[in-house]
Each structure stands twice: as C-alpha cells, then as structure tokens.
Computed example of a mutant assay.
Amino acid sequence: MTSLYSSNINRTMQQRFSFHQFLILTACLSLCLAFKADEIQRFQQQANANGTLSFLVVGDWGRRALFNQSKVAEQMGIIGEKSKANFVISTGDNFYDDGLTGPNDPAFNESFTNIYTAPSLKIPWLVVFWATMTIGGDALAQVKADGRWFCWRPLFIIHTKVAEFFFVDTTPFVDDYFTNPKEHVYDWRGVLPREDYLSKLLKDLDATLKNSSAKWKIVVGHHTIRSAGHHGNTTDLVTHLLPILKANKIDFYINGHDHCLQHISDPDSEIEFFTSGGGSKAWRGDIKPWDPKELKLYYDGQGFLSAKINKTTADIQFYDVSGNVLHNWSKSKEDSVMHRKSMLGRKALMY
C-alpha cells in the first residue's frame, strides 16, 4: 500500500516532502495504470497529530475562475488552513464544458492549478472520474497527477486510522449516457463491455467494504443517489449501488452532479447523503419537494463542505461562497476500546 504522506512530525516539511514524493509516485502510477487499469489502487493517508482527519469537498468547479470559482477557492484556502486539512475530495465535473482534450490541455492549469493556489490547498486532491469530453478529446487525460492530483478508475481506496474512503466511477451506471447521450460525447475506453465492467466494479466494492474494519466507511461518487436537486435521484445507482452500500452499512455517500449543497438522511438506513456540487456555477431555485425530516440542508448557491473525523465523532460543516456556515451536523460512535474498558469496570464492580 502506497503512503500519500511521509512522517507527520512537521506539517510544512511534510507538504514539501509530499510534493517530491507525489512526482515520483505518480510517474510510477502512470505506468501502472497503463497496464493494470482494472486493479484497485490503495493508498495510506496519515491523520493530524491529534488523531483527527480533516478534509474539504468541492465539486462541479472547473470553469477557469468564472461563476465565483475563484471566490470559492479563496474560502476553501481559509478554512483549509484553520482546519489543517489533510486532503481535498473533488466530486467530479472537473473541467467544463467538455473535459480535457489531452494531457497538455491548458484548461488543467486554467481551471485547477492556477485557481487553488492557497498553501493549505497544496495537499492531495482525490478526484472521482468523469467521462464526458469533446469530440476528439481525451477523458482519460484526467487520470494523471500534477503533484497533488490523484484520479483513478474504476475504484480506488484511501486508508486512514479512523476512516476508509472508496472512490467509485459512477458514470457507466447511467443508462441514458449509452441510450440517449444527446449532444454529449463519452469516452468509454476501458469500460466496454459495460456489463463486465460494472459487474467487476460492484463485486470489488462489495468485497472491499466487507473486508473493511474502518470505524467510518465513506463512499465517494460523482452522481447523486438521493437528491432534491435538478438531477434528482439517479435511479440506476439506487438499483445497483445503493443495496451494496446499505448491506455494508456505510456511513456517508458524498457526491456532486447537482450544483448545490445538500444533506439528506436516508430513512431506511444509517447512510447520510452529502452533495457538494457548488464549486462554481449553481442552479438557483431548482429544487424538488422532499420530506423536511430527511432534507437537512438544501442550498442553491456556491460553496463547499468541510469535515473533521476522529474515532468517535464526525463533524460536517457546509460553507457558502463568502465563508458563512450554512449547516452544522455531527455524528458520534462509541469507541470500542472505551466500551470494553467500561464493561470491564462494571464487571469488576459486580465482584
């Protein structure tokens, strides 16, 4: 398993070392991906010295600083510094309007490198894959790194001491992209035959979730599963992916796709659905009716999500484009070690 970080003795030294490490690592991974693209990529991520893991989530952002993208980036840099963020999750739709045309497309720098320039954002960016492109373009150009950019498909996993993150390529699940693509063009290299691709992806995800002993299990995809936004529920994911997530009792599903900020609690499981798709252009007033007992937040503007997790607690905050807190939410879990100590104490008292 590859480590994303060196020793966590000094945060600044750690970041400097990590850039050098990333350049070497990603060069090796480029070769690995060329020949073993169907294998699960696994990486180790260290938490902060106090045992807390901190990260930001942003999606649907890549518009060359337009539609307040640069303002969202500025606030991310501020919150990233305050929270000592370990990494950033990108939930897809990374380069508008039609992806990258190739590995040297200037849009990569114009929409990513030159936008997220705050020191606190020069950390790993963990990116879910999205297959749309222009005619003659190259969707697989996203599967690369510039020193902090990590994007793989169909599945990659980030291991930490307090949580595991499972990044899933959700694009091939959507039937409409194959049967009714309209004006869009999709890059299906490595996906066809589709049935085999999805079967293996679901099998691998199910197996890795079952084998995970993580305190928190978090799945990340581009497409919505539950959403009151423009796209609504993605029925193909509800049919094929959601049963696996429920069976393995994951904690959170994080996505983009709908250009909003959103939190929905599932009524039939313990899963919390978080949408962070407000990285640039938002869709004002585009909301479907939803049970207010389940819909904890719906914000039709720009912003991002911030999370802090330790072994017993997850704290989630949504921020708008001005850095205002829109929504706070927390969940606690009993620490099994503390529970065992408590039980031993009670037994001792009994005797």
Rank of each mutant, 00 (worst) to 15 (best):
residue 27 A to L: 00
residue 27 A to S: 00
residue 30 S to G: 00
residue 32 C to T: 00
residue 32 C to I: 00
residue 33 L to Y: 11
residue 33 L to I: 00
residue 36 K to R: 02
residue 39 E to V: 01
residue 39 E to H: 03
residue 42 R to Q: 06
residue 42 R to V: 04
residue 44 Q to P: 00
residue 44 Q to M: 02
residue 44 Q to F: 04
residue 47 A to Q: 08
residue 50 N to C: 07
residue 51 G to F: 04
residue 51 G to R: 07
residue 52 T to F: 06
residue 52 T to D: 13
residue 55 F to D: 03
residue 55 F to S: 05
residue 56 L to G: 01
residue 56 L to A: 01
residue 58 V to N: 04
residue 59 G to V: 08
residue 60 D to N: 15
residue 60 D to G: 11
residue 63 R to K: 15
residue 64 R to V: 07
residue 65 A to I: 03
residue 67 F to Q: 03
residue 70 S to Y: 05
residue 73 A to Y: 11
residue 74 E to H: 14
residue 77 G to A: 06
residue 77 G to M: 10
residue 78 I to P: 07
residue 82 K to G: 05
residue 85 A to R: 08
residue 86 N to A: 05
residue 86 N to V: 01
residue 87 F to A: 06
residue 87 F to Q: 06
residue 89 I to F: 13
residue 89 I to R: 09
residue 90 S to D: 14
residue 92 G to F: 12
residue 95 F to L: 05
residue 98 D to N: 14
residue 99 G to C: 08
residue 100 L to F: 11
residue 100 L to C: 03
residue 100 L to T: 02
residue 101 T to W: 01
residue 103 P to Y: 10
residue 104 N to E: 12
residue 105 D to K: 08
residue 106 P to D: 05
residue 106 P to R: 11
residue 110 E to C: 04
residue 111 S to W: 06
residue 112 F to T: 08
residue 112 F to Y: 15
residue 115 I to R: 04
residue 116 Y to I: 01
residue 118 A to M: 09
residue 120 S to F: 12
residue 120 S to D: 10
residue 122 K to W: 08
residue 123 I to Q: 03
residue 125 W to M: 04
residue 126 L to G: 00
